[in-house]
Design a protein around this nucleic acid. Structure first.
Lengths: 217, 217
DNA sequence: GTTAGCATGTAAGGAGTTACATGATTTT
DNA sequence: AAAATCATGTAACTCCTTACATGCTAAC
C-alpha cells in the first residue's frame, strides 16, 4: 500500500509537469528520456500514479476530451479518441510539491540513482541548485576515486589480472564522469545558458507522434 | 526465509573458493574487489551465508583452529585466535555448484548487475565462456545503442538541452564500454593470456593484512 | 482472423537496505 | 575508560519486477 517512491515519483511529477499524459505513454517517456539510468515497469508505475492521486498531486481525467490532438493522421481519423485512457494532470499542489523537490539538495541527491533523474529535469531547476547538485556529485565521485585508489594500492598484488582490469576500467569511468561534470560546472559558471525548453527551430507543432515508439524487448 | 540470491550468492561462492573467510572480511572484499558495481550490507550477507550453509555449499567452522596464520605479527601474538569468528569454507558440492554457475551463460549474464561479477571471476572461467560473456555483453550494448539512437532521432526536437546532454553522455559511456569489450575480445582471441591468479612477483606470502581496510563512510 | 500494439491494472515475491541489538577487542 | 573497529545477527521495510488477468484497436 501507499507506494510512495523516490525516483519514480520524482520523474512522474516532472514529466507530467511538462504536459498531461496517460500511463502507457508516461512509461515510454520514462524509459527513453531517462532511459540509460533506469527502466520502470507498469507494475510500479500504475500503483505510483494511484498513490500520487490519493495525495492530491495528480488528477485523473478520462480521455476523449477536447484537448485531443487534431486528427491530422490522414487515415481513418477515428474521432473521439480511443476511449478508456486515463490522462493524469498535475494539480497546483502537485506542482508546488515538485518545485519543493526540485529545490532540495539532500545527501542522496548525488547518488547514482537520484543524480540521473535530477539532471534530467535541470531545465526546470534554478541555477544555484544545479550548481550544488553538479558539485555535490563531483565531490562524491572524487571521494569514491580516492577510496578506490587507496584500496588498489593496498591490494594490488593479491588480485588477478581480470579483477585488476575491472577496477581500472571502473576507475576510468568515474574519472571520465568527473571530467564531464567539471565541464558542465564550467559552462554553468560562464553563463552558457541552455534553453529550458524545446530546442526546436523547425516545424510548427509536434508533427504527429512517430509510429512505433516501442521500448520493450 | 531462504534468501537465495543471484549476484551476492555468486560472489560469495567465488570469493570463498579462493580461500575461507569469515563474514566481516568477506564483506570488505566484496565491496572492494567488486566495488564499483555493487555494495552489500551485513543485512543481506549473513542471511545469505546461512542459506548457503543450509544447502550444503558452505560449512561453518568456529575459528581459533590450526590453520590460522603463523603469528608472524611481531607484536603481542594473541595466540589461539580471536574466538567467536565463524569461518566459512566451500564444500565439495559448493565448489561443483560454483563451477556450474561459472559455465552458464544465460540471457541475464550480460545485464549490468550480473556482468560485473562474472567478469570479476574470469580468472576462474574457461576461455570459451569468457568469450561468450564478452560478446554477449557487447551485442547487448549495441542493441541498446541502436535503440537510443533511434529514439534520439525521433524525439530530438522536443527535448531540452539538458536531457539531450544526458542522453549524449549516456550514449558515449555505452560506446566506450563497447570499445573496451572489443579490445578485451581481441586480446582473448590473440591468446594474450592473463594469469589466473596473483600477479605477484615480490614477497613470500601475504605480508600481513594491511591496517584499516575500512570501506564504510 | 490472428498477430501486434495500445491500455490498465493486481498479487506475489525477489533482492536488497536500514535500523536496531549485542558483545568482544584494540587503540587512544 | 572511551572510542573505534571487529564481529554477528534480526525484523521491518523499500522499491521494484514478474507473471498474470483483461480488453480494445490497428495492421497484416
Amino acid at each position: 500500500m501507499s507506494r510512495r517512491s523516490g525516483v519514480l515519483e520524482f520523474a512522474v511529477l516532472g514529466l507530467l509537469r511538462e504536459s498531461p499524459m496517460h500511463g502507457y505513454e508516461l512509461r515510454k517517456r520514462l524509459n527513453t528520456s531517462l532511459g540509460v539510468f533506469r527502466a520502470f515497469s507498469y507494475g510500479s508505475l500504475y500503483p505510483c500514479l494511484k498513490a500520487l492521486v490519493q495525495r492530491g498531486w495528480l488528477v485523473e481525467e478520462p480521455s476523449g476530451q477536447p484537448e485531443e490532438q487534431q486528427p491530422a493522421r490522414a487515415q481513418a481519423a477515428p474521432l473521439a479518441g480511443r476511449r478508456a485512457k486515463i490522462v493524469y494532470r498535475l494539480t497546483a499542489e502537485g506542482k508546488e510539491h515538485f518545485e519543493d523537490l526540485l529545490s532540495q539538495t539532500g545527501p542522496d541527491t548525488w547518488e547514482d540513482e537520484h543524480f540521473g533523474v535530477r539532471f534530467a529535469f535541470f531545465g526546470q531547476t534554478s541555477r544555484d541548485v544545479r550548481m550544488r547538485v553538479l558539485e555535490g556529485r563531483r565531490s562524491r565521485l572524487e571521494e569514491r576515486l580516492a577510496k578506490m585508489r587507496a584500496s588498489l594500492a593496498r591490494t594490488r598484488e593479491r588480485l588477478d589480472d581480470y579483477t585488476l582490469e575491472l577496477q581500472r576500467h571502473g576507475m576510468e569511468s568515474v574519472e571520465r564522469e568527473v571530467r564531464w561534470l567539471s565541464e558542465l560546472i564550467e559552462s554553468e559558471r560562464n553563463g552558457t545558458e541552455r534553453s529550458g525548453r524545446p530546442a526546436r527551430e523547425t516545424g510548427p507543432d509536434r508533427p504527429a507522434p512517430g509510429p512505433s515508439d516501442n521500448t520493450d524487448t
